[in-house]
């Protein structure tokens, strides 16, 4: 049983404050969808939790099972059980997928997997995501299509088995077939019930395949509405306009009063 606890999180990029007090708790067995328009700070939340150096946490806390993630380096957070599936996975020239995955598994599990077992595990993982076995020998993400990159992210998710997974717009840029394959991967991952998922998305489409327990609407750097899966249907019909307008209004008011 694991818990990711985000309390009053404020994050800035340079001088600009992006997150303005985010509160969120994700427990094992739960899937939380974070939905919001572009520029609302969804990705900032993902990168700040993972510890990207570009984002500065100005106040608040992020705890994983009571441990302060903000005190940890990026790799320590990963080894503590946090996983971030990137919206734009990075190409690493000269490092094969196989080498990359084996290095990651070794780091996260604390010991190198036996070569034969690793090969078996990798093959099974790739088969499940309909990834061509030849990818194992290709350079990590180099020349991959958008869909291939996202499948590769979910492959890592399934192999590394984190306690809490943050999926940053994993659905964006996917066609329906790829979306289904990727969603099945996420569902396999959460089927154990021992893991929590924070699913960040702009669109409701993926929520037809990956059913959330909770939906949070993000606007202006904070959560502005929360509810169950029915909130996603409301967004599907009404869009984000009302939230964006309210967030702007609140912003103007707070500036005026300051």
């Amino acid at each position: 049983m694991s818990t990711l606890e985000i309390r009053d999180l404020h994050v800035a990029v340079g001088d600009k404050e992006i997150l303005r007090g985010v509160d969120l708790t994700v427990r094992s067995g739960e899937t939380h969808a974070i939905m919001g328009p572009n520029g609302s700070g969804k990705s900032t939340l993902a990168y700040a939790i993972a510890g990207h150096p570009k984002y500065t946490v100005t106040s608040g806390s992020v705890l994983l099972d009571g441990e302060d993630l903000l005190e940890m380096s990026v790799d320590e957070r990963s080894r503590a059980g946090l996983f971030l599936a990137m919206q734009y996975p990075v190409e690493v020239p000269g490092v094969s997928v196989s080498n990359f995955l084996r290095s990651a598994i070794t780091a996260v599990r604390g010991e190198a997997p036996k070569l034969r077992e690793f090969a078996k595990e990798l093959k099974a993982g790739m088969d499940a995501l309909s990834i061509d076995p030849a990818f194992a020998q290709r350079n990590t993400n180099e020349g991959f299509s958008g869909g291939e990159k996202k499948r590769h992210e979910i492959l890592q998710l399934e192999l590394l088995k984190p306690k809490i997974a943050v999926l940053d717009e994993t659905d964006s840029g996917l066609d329906v077939d790829a979306l289904r394959v990727v969603s099945e991967g996420i569902n396999r991952f959460r089927a154990s019930g021992d893991t929590g998922v924070l699913l960040i998305t702009h669109y409701t489409r993926i929520l037809r395949y990956v059913k959330p327990d909770f939906v949070h609407v993000f606007a202006g750097g904070r959560v502005v509405e929360e509810g169950g899966p029915e909130l996603a249907d409301k967004l599907e019909n009404e869009g984000y306009e009302a939230y964006v307008r309210d967030a702007r209004k609140a912003d103007t008011t707070s500036k005026a009063s300051a």
Partner: peptide
């Protein structure tokens, strides 16, 4: 960052990237 986010300590991440630089 990508490699560290997959659990590799900084030195290991650096080693892998430099390896990749020379690999071909």
């Amino acid at each position: 960052f990508y490699l560290q986010a997959r659990g590799l300590p900084f030195d290991e991440a650096r080693r892998l990237v430099i390896h990749g630089f020379f690999a071909q």
